[in-house]
Simulated assay, not measured.
Amino acid sequence: MLFQKLLKENFQIWDSYLHHDFVKQLENGTLKSENFLFYLKQDYIYLIHYAKCYALLALNANNARELRFAMKFQNYIVEGELELHKSILKLGIDADKLGVKDESLANIAYTRYMLSVGQSGDYLDLLVALSACAIGYGYIGKEIYENIGAKKLENHPYKEWILTYSGEAFQDEIKEFEDFLNSYEKSVSKEKFAKLSEIFYSVVRLEVNFWQHALDLKLEL
């Protein structure tokens, strides 16, 4: 499977993304609220750009199947994840007023990199760039839920976030994403895979940095 090959090729950085200290602190409930709030604000801004990437993915589509996929996932982000973040951020922060001055340099680096992949590469290049966030959050959410269990989650400070990414709806979405990505396996040459692996490594590295900058509370680099 194409995605599993990408994971195997980039196992070390992928593992540091899934098991980052931010994730472990979130899981055990010791993550400070200021760090979680910083992350949520940045992720809200991130998701706006992430949704734009799916618009670019749609523009790069070669057929109706690819177009439907891009439009479906863009809608899922706009109607689902952004609304989740907005509901959590409502405690003293107006999400709609977050602008460019609130955006961290780590956020800018990540989102503009994905947009550049879509502008300079093809549909599959951008699909792989988008996969680290989409599929990674599914893996993280599922693992956290399995580690904690339903009973301990009842009074967990980050219950809403964990239930979103471990929930059936999101898990179904990321399975669809992974299956869709894997459908391109037979068309990927050795040279193409090398390029895709470089893209994947870069975005996972940017995901790791995204967790870290939330721990450090750093808008600058």
Results as ranks from 00 to 15, higher is better:
Y123V: 08
F210S: 01
W161S: 02
L89V: 04
F11L: 09
D15V: 07
V208Y: 06
E34I: 14
L6N: 03
Y76T: 13
T164D: 05
E143C: 03
Y44C: 05
K8M: 08
D43A: 11
L84V: 05
S202W: 07
V203C: 02
F38I: 09
F11N: 06
S120L: 14
F193K: 04
E191T: 15
V208A: 09
E176H: 14
I148P: 05
V188G: 03
S183M: 07
L124K: 14
L98S: 10
L217W: 13
N155Y: 03
R68K: 12
H19C: 05
V117Q: 02
A214R: 00
F3A: 07
S104R: 05
L206Y: 08
D125C: 09
L56N: 10
L217D: 04
K192C: 12
E79W: 10
V188Q: 02
L18N: 09
K192H: 15
K52S: 12
E168A: 07
F22I: 08
K218N: 15
K218V: 11
C53W: 01
L219W: 02
D122M: 12
E176Q: 09
N147E: 07
K192Q: 15
S87D: 07
S116H: 13
V203N: 00
I174C: 11
G92R: 11
G118T: 02
I162L: 10
Q12D: 07
S16C: 08
S87T: 11
K5P: 10
L206V: 02
D21G: 06
V208F: 07
N75G: 14
F210A: 01
E185S: 15
L221S: 15
T164W: 10
K32H: 12
K72H: 08
A169M: 10
K190E: 15
V204Y: 00
H20L: 05
I108M: 13
E9I: 03
L126S: 02
H19D: 07
C133G: 06
Q74C: 14
E143K: 05
K97H: 10
L124Y: 04
D21C: 06
E154G: 08
V100A: 12
L6M: 07
L130S: 14
H20V: 06
N62F: 03
L47D: 07
D43F: 10
Y145P: 10
L18F: 04
Y145G: 09
Y50H: 13
E185K: 13
G141V: 01
F180Y: 11
G138I: 01
K32S: 13
E220R: 15
L124N: 14
Y123H: 06
V100N: 10
I140Y: 05
A194D: 12
E185H: 13
P157V: 01
F11R: 08
R205S: 15
H85S: 07
V100G: 11
L181R: 00
I88P: 12
L196M: 07
E176R: 06
E191D: 14
F180G: 00
T30W: 00
Y165I: 04
Y76C: 08
